[in-house]
Computed example of a mutant assay.
Amino acid sequence: MSDANSRSIVSNQDGLHDKLDEIVNKHLTAQFKKPIAAHTQTAFDQVNEEVQAFTGPLILDSCCGVGESTANLAKRHPDALVIGIDKSSHRLDKHEVEYKQTDSGHYILVQADLNDFWRLAVAANWQPTHHYLLYPNPWPKAKHIQRRWHGAAIFPFIVKLGGRLEVRSNWDIYVKEFAHALYLAGQETQVELYESEEAITPFERKYWASGQQSHRLVIDLD
């Protein structure tokens, strides 16, 4: 498939999900007690050693896919340690072949489940200066609302991680729902169109080549 024919999001939702408030408020007041998976604990412990030893800014690139965005963010923030996290080893394995950048920046790629990784990062008192969520899986069917990060039980931990959070999607409803969930958590932000001369993820490049727009929110959670 060429870069220029990425399909648009198709959803049976034409606005915010009608259960969004109920779901988010439930997660904001409940305790998330799911046990941490052993493989994510191991991966986190290894990375945490580097994080604790590092004295510069910490940046998270969650759902980093093949890690092209992670490498690009490291280039833009040469004084920072950038950590890209994705659950798919298949996607991460492509990085060395196609996307690795060695000219500047310091970054690490980690295979882990973010439902566990974010909780471990909060418990370890990580304080990222920036947290990027670039084009997460939109789960556009209404019945999958709780698979979207803002509708998931882990959502309060995204807020607790703090830093400058940036969420981008080619589906405006995803970002609008995320902004509304943040509002329910006491954090107010706006959704805007995002344009740039340079795409920093393969999805971003593909969407723009197909004439699709990017929507984003940026908020300082500290």
Rank of each mutant, 00 (worst) to 15 (best):
R91Y: 11
V97D: 11
K100H: 14
K94T: 11
L92T: 07
H77S: 01
K94P: 08
H95E: 10
Q101F: 13
L92M: 12
K87D: 03
D93M: 13
D103V: 10
L81R: 04
D79Y: 03
A71R: 04
D86F: 06
E98T: 11
G65I: 09
E68A: 10
H90C: 07
K75M: 11
V82R: 03
E98W: 05
K87M: 12
K100S: 11
C63W: 06
D86H: 02
S104T: 11
K87H: 06
T70K: 00
Q111E: 15
H95M: 02
H90N: 15
I83W: 00
S89P: 15
S104R: 12
V110S: 02
G84W: 00
S88G: 03
E98D: 09
Y107M: 11
G67Y: 07
K75W: 11
R91A: 14
P78D: 15
E96M: 12
D79M: 12
H77V: 00
I83D: 01
P78E: 10
S89K: 14
Q101T: 02
N72T: 01
R91P: 12
T70Y: 00
R76Q: 08
V66W: 04
Y107P: 00
H106V: 07
E68Y: 13
S69N: 04
A112I: 08
Y107V: 00
E98R: 07
C64D: 02
K94F: 09
P78S: 14
Q101I: 04
H90G: 09
D103E: 09
L81A: 06
